[in-house]
Structures are given as structure tokens and as C-alpha cells.
Amino acid sequence: MLKSVNRKVALFLAAVAILFIFLSFQLPSYPYTEVDADIVPKGLGFLLLICSILLFFNNQEETEAERKKREIPRDELLMLLAVFGIILVYIFLLELIGFVIMTILFIFFTTWFLGYKKLISNLAVSVTFSLVIYLLFSYLLQINLPAGILPI
């Protein structure tokens, strides 16, 4: 079982290496240089290919600690996916809706979602944090975070 996981990873890496080598061969050549732009990437691609082959045939036993790292309950994984989903939504809406509103919503909702149930202090933190950061950046540092639909 253990070996096969490492082997799967090795196969995946070999695929990455081959793709990378393929892309390196597509690079246009430049006439006025000794070492062109494609040399180093090609070298890296082949090195990765060699290393993934070595990994494939490596029979070094995985330690108990290493095995444990991979054992993640399904629920937890879904939780993680959900958080990444929320981050995606945040990024997508950041410039449309604006920093302040999105950040308040993000902190409040994610914190609640991860199991913090004190709504008042949650709300207080998310609002204060977002406003303080926004004002700090916009007025003190003159770095403009997206205002979005709020007229500040």
C-alpha cells in the first residue's frame, strides 16, 4: 500500500516532467545568446524525470509519522474544500463588492463556519479588523484597497 502511494506520486511527477520538457521544446529560439532560454528548463525537466524514476523504484520504507499525515477523515477534507471555496468567492468578488464588505463577510462567516459560535464578538472583530485595515492602508499608507460599492 505504502509503496504504491509513492509510486503514484512518482508517476504524477514524471507526467509533470514530460509536460515541462514538451513545453520547453516549444520555446522560440533567440539568435543572440550562447545559452538560450530553453536550456535550463529542459535540464530541469530531465532532472525531474530522473528523480521521479528514482522515487518510483525507491524502496525506502515510509515512517509511521509520514503515513499518519496522509490519513485525513473525509469530513475534514470537505471542510477544507469548503474553506477554499469561500476564499475563491472572496477573491472573485473582492474588486466588485469592495474590500470592507467582503472582508467583514469573510471573517465572520469563516470563523462561524469553523465552529466559533459567539456571534457578537465575532461580528465585533470582523467589522473592526476590516475597517482598521482599510483605513490604515487608504489614509495612512496611501495604498488603495478596492472600495467597491461603499462610497468611502
Partner: peptide, 9 residues
């Protein structure tokens, strides 16, 4: 939970 959301932000 709050630390996590703050680190992300």
C-alpha cells in the same frame, strides 16, 4: 477558527 480566518485574510 478566528485565527484561521485572520491568517487567510
Amino acid at each position: 477558527p478566528m485565527l484561521i480566518s485572520l491568517v487567510i485574510i
